Amino acid sequence: MARPRAFDEKQVLNAVRDQFWDAGYAATSLADLMRVSGLGKGSLYAAFGDKRQLFLRVLTSYTDELLGHLREALAEAPRALDALRTLLDAPIDDSTGAGPRRGCLMANSTCELGNADPDVLDHAHRTYEASTALIADCAARAQREGDLPAEADPIALARALLAAQQGLVFMSRTGLDTATLTATARSLAAQLLPDHTGG
């Protein structure tokens, strides 16, 4: 009979995620993974597979959580337009606790591995498409609420907002000060989400 695992899988995955997030995939060694997880090589590989399999597992867990947070944030806002504007504040005032200078694990991983690993690139594409669909649904709600012009294309707006948000994330990683990031976010919001109601 197989012995039950004597570790918390979620805790291990979170520790491994933070290691990959801070150092990147290539710079993370097996020794690093063993150190942060508290597991030996045999236990680590038996539970999660090799380094690449473990990384893909972490990436999937991260993006599932990311999409869940996005879905909740967009759905819970009293008005859809406010939720859309909040998207541009996220890289500056990060409620996840990750810290804006850390960037997005999905974006970081795509930059590092997208050209070399088709699975990472495919995962990034699917994640951004799912994000676009959620944001577009919110934009359509803002149209129904009368806060966005009826003729606006929700998908096009969603892609523009996502591109703006990711741009802010990248700028934050360069060390740009918070005041400048905030001013830039407000400028983007004014251009992409103007208040056409006059309120």
Rank of each mutant, 00 (worst) to 15 (best):
Arg102Asn: 09
Arg173Phe: 00
Leu148Phe: 12
Arg173Thr: 15
Leu105Asp: 05
Asn108Leu: 13
Ala179Arg: 14
Glu129Phe: 04
Gln143Leu: 02
Arg144Trp: 03
Leu157Trp: 08
Asp137Thr: 13
Ala183Asp: 14
Arg141Thr: 09
Thr110Glu: 09
Ile135Glu: 09
Leu161Val: 13
Gln143Arg: 13
Ala150Ser: 14
Leu157Thr: 05
Gly167Val: 05
Ile155Phe: 00
Thr110Cys: 06
Ser187Trp: 07
Gly114His: 06
Thr132Met: 08
Pro100Thr: 12
Arg159Gly: 08
Gly175Ile: 08
Ala158Gly: 05
Gly167Ser: 05
Thr182Leu: 10
Ser172Thr: 14
Ala142Ser: 10
Leu134Met: 15
Ala140Phe: 01
Asp122Arg: 12
Ala142Thr: 10
Phe170Thr: 15
Asp137Lys: 12
Glu151Arg: 13
Gly103Leu: 00
Gln143His: 10
Thr180Trp: 05
Leu148Ile: 13
Asp117Ala: 03
Asn108Ala: 13
Ala150Thr: 15
Thr174His: 04
Gly103Gln: 06
Asp117Lys: 01
Cys104His: 11
Ile135Asp: 07
Ala124Trp: 10
Thr184Gly: 02
His125Pro: 02
Asp153Tyr: 02
Asp147Ser: 11
Ala142Ile: 08
Ala164Asn: 13
Ser172Ala: 15
Ala136Trp: 04
Thr184Glu: 09
Gly103Phe: 03
Gly146Ala: 08
Ala156Val: 15
Ala160Gln: 11
Val120Trp: 00
Val169Leu: 08
Gly175Ala: 03
Phe170Lys: 12
Ala139Pro: 09
Cys138Trp: 06
Ala130Val: 01
Asp153Ser: 06
Ser187Arg: 09
Gly114Ile: 13
Ser187Gln: 12
Thr132Trp: 01
His125Tyr: 11
Ala183Met: 11
